[in-house]
């Protein structure tokens, strides 16, 4: 607890702001059903109602409460992005560490596969696969996780390569330690900091990708509430000068900014850089 307080005290204001925003988002996502005034799919009135006491942010294109959708949107959008990122991380880290530790053919094969996947813009691959498999949450998570794991792979491999070259890893090898022990005890603890920072960045990237896909109508499908789709569904309001449809977009932007602030701080702490 004391160390937590010390850490918080040492944070620059941007990182502090970022951490606070992330905490609020998580709380909203977890307690969505308690916080939201209506239920997620309930039609509560006419279409496009103005902001009022009953409907703080008005209603959407089908007459559902905007605030409620916004709150549930936090839950759906965050959860899907988080799962996709986490999955990408598990795949990328494991293969990356394996490639660096084993080297040789394993590394060659994995690296070439990743090279090929990364030779094509990610969004294009995603769109191609969504065309073939159709849209759906499971497909979405799987496709994004696999494609994004290539970037995690590159980082994990590069970081681990730097560590593998260290004498202490060599010492563990010639001691006769097993592969798992070396990966778990010698490499992973030293790779943790850059990987955590990368997790933040990948999360932002995945989050923005899913938002973009949903905005295009190819991501999270109705009637689930989701920020990207909410913008698309209500975009016409903007041409009348109504900013309501921009609120979910702003919610996305705020979270990404927040995560980036925290990541920046972690990276500076890790590299020990002063600027």
């Amino acid at each position: 607890m004391a160390s937590l307080i010390r850490t918080v005290k040492g944070m620059p204001p941007t990182a502090l702001f970022g951490a606070a925003v992330i905490a609020i988002y998580v709380l909203v996502a977890v307690f969505a059903p308690l916080l939201a005034p209506y239920s997620e799919r309930e039609v509560v009135g006419d279409q496009y109602l103005q902001w009022s006491a009953q409907h703080w942010l008005g209603t959407d294109n089908l007459g559902r409460d905007m605030l409620t959708r916004l709150i549930f949107g936090a839950r759906n959008t965050l959860a899907i992005a988080f799962f996709a990122t986490a999955l990408a991380f598990v795949i990328g880290t494991v293969t990356g560490l394996l490639a660096a530790t084993l080297g040789g053919v394993v590394d060659q094969v994995l690296s070439r596969v990743v090279d090929i996947i990364m030779a094509v813009p990610g969004l294009i691959f995603i769109l191609l696969l969504l065309t073939i498999f159709g849209t759906g949450i499971v497909t979405l998570i799987a496709v994004i996780a696999v494609l994004d794991s290539t970037r995690v792979f590159r980082l994990a491999r590069a970081v681990a390569f730097g560590i593998v070259a260290m004498d202490y890893v060599e010492a563990a090898r010639v001691r006769g330690e097993g592969l798992l022990w070396i990966m778990r005890r010698e490499i992973l603890p030293n790779a943790a900091a850059p990987l955590v920072a990368e997790f933040g960045m990948r999360f932002c990237f995945v989050f923005l990708t899913i938002a973009a896909l949903s905005f295009l109508g190819l991501g999270i499908q109705p009637p689930l509430a989701d920020w990207g789709s909410m913008v698309r569904e209500n975009a016409t309001l903007i041409t009348f000068g109504d900013i309501t449809p921009l609120l979910p977009a702003a919610a996305i932007a705020l979270l990404t900014v927040a995560v980036n602030f925290v990541v920046d701080w972690i990276l500076h702490k890790v590299s020990g850089m002063k600027d």
């Binding site: 260290m166 004498d167 202490y168 010492a171 010639v174 006769g176 005890r185 010698e186 603890p189």
Partner: peptide, 23 residues
Amino acid sequence: SKAELRQVQMVYQMADTALNPRQ
């Protein structure tokens, strides 16, 4: 074998890279 490995040990030039900074 483990017994053979045990017989020969090494001390490295750069103490900084010879010890795992997290242990």
